[in-house]
Simulated assay, not measured.
Amino acid sequence: MPNKLARAVAQLREKDESQPLMYCSATQMVSQNLEHLKVWPADIPRPLSLYNALIENVCVGCTMVFNKQTLQLVRKKIPATLNNVIMHDWWIYLCTASFGEVVFDPEPSIWYRQHQNNVLGGSTDGLVSKWRKRLSRFVKGKNRYILSKQARQFVQLYGQDMPSQLYRDVDQFLDSYQKGVFSRMKYIGQSPFYRQSRLDNWIYKLVFILGKL
């Protein structure tokens, strides 16, 4: 969109610029013929905090604008290997949400082109099809353990710098995940971590209990 950068900079300047800041926006998904499909993410009802970023990425990389503090934060501790980093935009979201502030703009800043051979990106599947595919990926192992591995990698690099309460909550999350199924069931009922959608949240809880996060 023509005003993408101007909107981002204006919204970031309303915040405390001494801390890490990151802007991201919704996207207007379009077909391969540029016909409008839907806006994604359409609704962000819960805070863009570490408690979301640890288990879900709602920040599309091509919409991101961040300040120098965020750049320095991410460059400060680059993982020795990227095998445990799911995606670059998710990692930046995780870093910024832990030490600064993330600003979400519900007005789309880009057209996100979809076509039949998309490898990554938003999906236009119906609800049933979407969740059948997602559960299948976990059951068949394609997504197995990637969330817990990324969380552990993040704590290894940034744990000593995190606010004490955040560190304790992440540590309890990882510790509970390593225990038996009954301990995982007990923990997940009071876990402070969440995904934005209610249905996504139930999927997260199920996968955690199954030990395949």
Rank of each mutant, 00 (worst) to 15 (best):
N201G: 08
A8H: 04
G121F: 04
P41K: 09
V74C: 14
Q32I: 05
S191P: 03
T27S: 15
Y145E: 15
D105Q: 02
K76H: 05
L48N: 07
I86L: 13
L21W: 06
R13G: 04
G141Q: 10
D169N: 14
S109T: 15
R152D: 14
L157R: 05
L199E: 03
Y158M: 10
F66C: 04
S129K: 13
I78P: 11
Q172R: 09
G211Y: 11
V139H: 03
V85Y: 05
D161E: 15
V119Y: 13
Q116S: 11
V74I: 14
A42Y: 01
Y194S: 08
V30M: 09
F66D: 00
K149G: 06
N3P: 04
P192H: 14
L12D: 06
V103M: 04
Y145K: 10
K179H: 10
V74K: 05
M87Q: 11
H36C: 04
T124M: 07
L34Q: 10
D43R: 12
Q72I: 01
R184N: 02
G159E: 12
E56P: 01
N201P: 02
K205F: 04
C24A: 12
Y93W: 00
V128F: 01
S31P: 07
L120V: 11
G61D: 08
I146Y: 12
R13P: 00
A26F: 09
S183I: 05
L213F: 11
V30W: 03
M162P: 04
D171K: 12
F104E: 00
P2M: 10
I78G: 06
H36N: 12
H115A: 09
